[in-house]
């Protein structure tokens, strides 16, 4: 199993930390992982993205240009990464702020209205965990117990009391997923 993922959105949406939790969960489940952030002018305002690879084998390149899964959280990232999803691959996106919805027919497409849901809960910070839940519903590449361990590893101890809330948000994400194009 090798899963090559791009997560892309605005800086501040929790793109990098979502990737980190996923990567750490992979480590906990004894997988090979790599987490490669955009660290350029992007992180100084504007878009932000991270490539996460989780595999049973040694990972060749941490930088790749085609992905099994793209998790897209704004229009700029949609423009940049829609065509980098491998045929048969997966695109998950939050429809909030998306003006041009994807129309590719050769990939699986799901919406996860995470912004809306996070606003309902009243904690915008849970946004990225809701998105992560959506992804894990389609591709359960790491088991929930390891996600918990991943959360423990990647969150500072003073935030550990928030883990149940995060886990709940992941469950929420799994439940609100909306299929758009399923092969």
């Amino acid at each position: 199993m090798t899963e090559e993922i791009i997560i892309a959105g605005f800086g501040g949406q929790g793109v990098l930390s979502m990737g980190k939790i996923l990567a750490y969960s992979g480590v906990m489940q004894d997988k090979e992982v790599s987490w490669m952030p955009s660290y350029g002018p992007e992180m100084r305002g504007g878009t932000s993205n991270v490539t996460v690879i989780i595999s049973d084998e040694r990972i060749s390149s941490p930088r790749i240009n085609q992905f099994d899964t793209a998790i897209i959280l704004n229009q700029q990232s949609m423009d940049k990464f829609l065509n980098t999803v491998k045929p048969g691959g997966l695109l998950i996106y939050d429809p909030n702020g998306i003006t041009e919805h994807p129309t590719r027919k050769d990939i699986n497409i799901y919406q996860v209205p995470a912004s809306e849901e996070a606003a309902k809960i009243g904690i915008m910070k849970l946004f990225n965990m809701i998105v992560l839940g959506g992804f894990l519903k389609i591709k359960p590449i790491v088991k929930p117990e390891f996600i918990r361990k991943g959360l423990e590893k990647s969150l500072p101890e003073r935030h550990h009391h928030l883990i149940p809330e995060n886990e709940k948000a992941i469950e929420t994400g799994k439940n609100i997923l909306k299929p758009i194009n399923v092969l």
Binding site: V27, V33, S34, M36, P37, I59, P62
Partner: peptide, 8 residues
């Protein structure tokens, strides 16, 4: 790249 990437 090697400076910024996270691996085990």
């Amino acid at each position: 790249m090697i400076g910024q990437v996270m691996e085990k």
